Amino acid sequence: MFSYGLFGMLIVQLFFYQFDTRDQDPTWLRVFVSVLALSELVNMIVTTIFMWEVLAQHWGDPFILLSVDSLASKTLAGIPLLSGIVATMAHSFFSWRIHRLTGSSLIPTIVMLISLTTCAMAGYCGIRAAHIGIFRLTELDVEVTIWLGGSTLCDLIISAVLVFKLLYQQKRAMSFQTRHQIHHLIALTVETSLVTTLTALFALALFILLHNDDMFFAPLLMLSQVYSNCLLATLNSRTVLNKVASSGHPLWVDLDRSRTTTSLLHTYE
């Protein structure tokens, strides 16, 4: 139910993106958002089939959790894989932001290597669970820990680097207006990163602490929607920030076209 709610929020986010900010983005970014939305649609379809088979079609039948030939077992492979793909797409987007802001490729490369590893582990967990049964997914200790722990680590690195860079630029800013805008960016970065980090960390904590239970499925099923909503919220926030600015230049577009925020600060000052 949380997944359905987050998917509804994502539709609203896509609506605002389509009519408010889409025209100012390059073609590759519009395609990126379209692929992300399509991935979430497929993920919701697969999740719906899985939950229908377990909680409706075979309600009260515990053997469905051990079956490897059921439709639920076959669709289970797609849920972690799609979740890993969406998380990696989000990490790649924010890694690109870091590269544009700092001009460095080292940290984005590290983040992407970790993220690709987590994506591979997510796909392996899904395929493996489809062969051994849903209930035995808890046997994949190392794989699940690498998957969820790696996603959490990526989120922490991304948020730390972005906040540090924005704080540095905020100290250099001379006008109150520029500092106020950067403050909004810092708050947005912390909030979105906090949501994704806590969701992945909550799933990992349930997996470790309640090892013989499947409670970690609850945050796991909505993990990809959390990443998608945070990414779209970041893109849509440009409209709000542009309304705050006295200049007509889009804030994040200027950030995209320069390796530092120096030219941006000069523009607004």
Results as ranks from 00 to 15, higher is better:
residue 240 V to R: 05
residue 83 S to C: 14
residue 4 Y to G: 07
residue 25 D to P: 00
residue 40 E to S: 06
residue 66 L to Q: 11
residue 262 T to G: 09
residue 244 V to I: 13
residue 49 I to M: 12
residue 151 S to N: 11
residue 206 L to Y: 02
residue 260 T to Q: 12
residue 225 Q to E: 09
residue 265 L to Q: 09
residue 223 L to H: 07
residue 135 F to E: 09
residue 265 L to A: 07
residue 29 L to Y: 13
residue 111 V to L: 03
residue 15 F to M: 13
residue 99 H to E: 12
residue 162 L to W: 03
residue 250 P to C: 12
residue 260 T to W: 15
residue 143 E to D: 12
residue 184 H to L: 09
residue 267 T to W: 06
residue 60 G to D: 03
residue 184 H to W: 12
residue 250 P to Y: 11
residue 143 E to S: 15
residue 80 P to T: 05
residue 258 S to E: 11
residue 220 L to M: 11
residue 166 L to E: 02
residue 137 L to V: 10
residue 254 D to N: 13
residue 163 V to A: 00
residue 67 S to P: 02
residue 211 H to E: 00
residue 249 H to I: 15
residue 27 T to Y: 08
residue 160 A to P: 04
residue 124 Y to I: 05
residue 80 P to R: 09
residue 11 I to E: 05
residue 252 W to E: 10
residue 124 Y to C: 02
residue 129 A to K: 00
residue 196 T to Y: 00
residue 255 L to S: 07
residue 91 H to M: 10
residue 15 F to S: 07
residue 183 H to M: 08
residue 191 E to C: 12
residue 201 L to E: 04
residue 50 F to E: 08
residue 102 T to F: 11
residue 23 D to Q: 14
residue 215 M to D: 06
residue 243 K to W: 06
residue 220 L to W: 02
residue 146 I to D: 02
residue 179 R to H: 10
residue 214 D to Y: 15
residue 248 G to V: 14
residue 134 I to S: 03
residue 215 M to N: 10
residue 204 L to E: 01
residue 7 F to D: 09
residue 23 D to H: 15
residue 241 L to T: 10
residue 219 P to W: 01
residue 198 L to S: 11
residue 211 H to M: 02
residue 31 V to M: 05
residue 94 F to S: 04
residue 18 Q to A: 08
residue 29 L to N: 05
residue 222 M to Q: 02
residue 50 F to L: 12
residue 147 W to N: 10
residue 45 I to D: 00
residue 266 H to L: 15
residue 39 S to K: 10
residue 21 T to Y: 12
residue 209 L to D: 10
residue 244 V to Y: 13
residue 254 D to M: 15
residue 165 K to W: 13
residue 177 Q to A: 15
residue 236 N to G: 02
residue 47 T to E: 15
residue 185 L to T: 11
residue 231 L to E: 05
residue 100 R to Q: 05
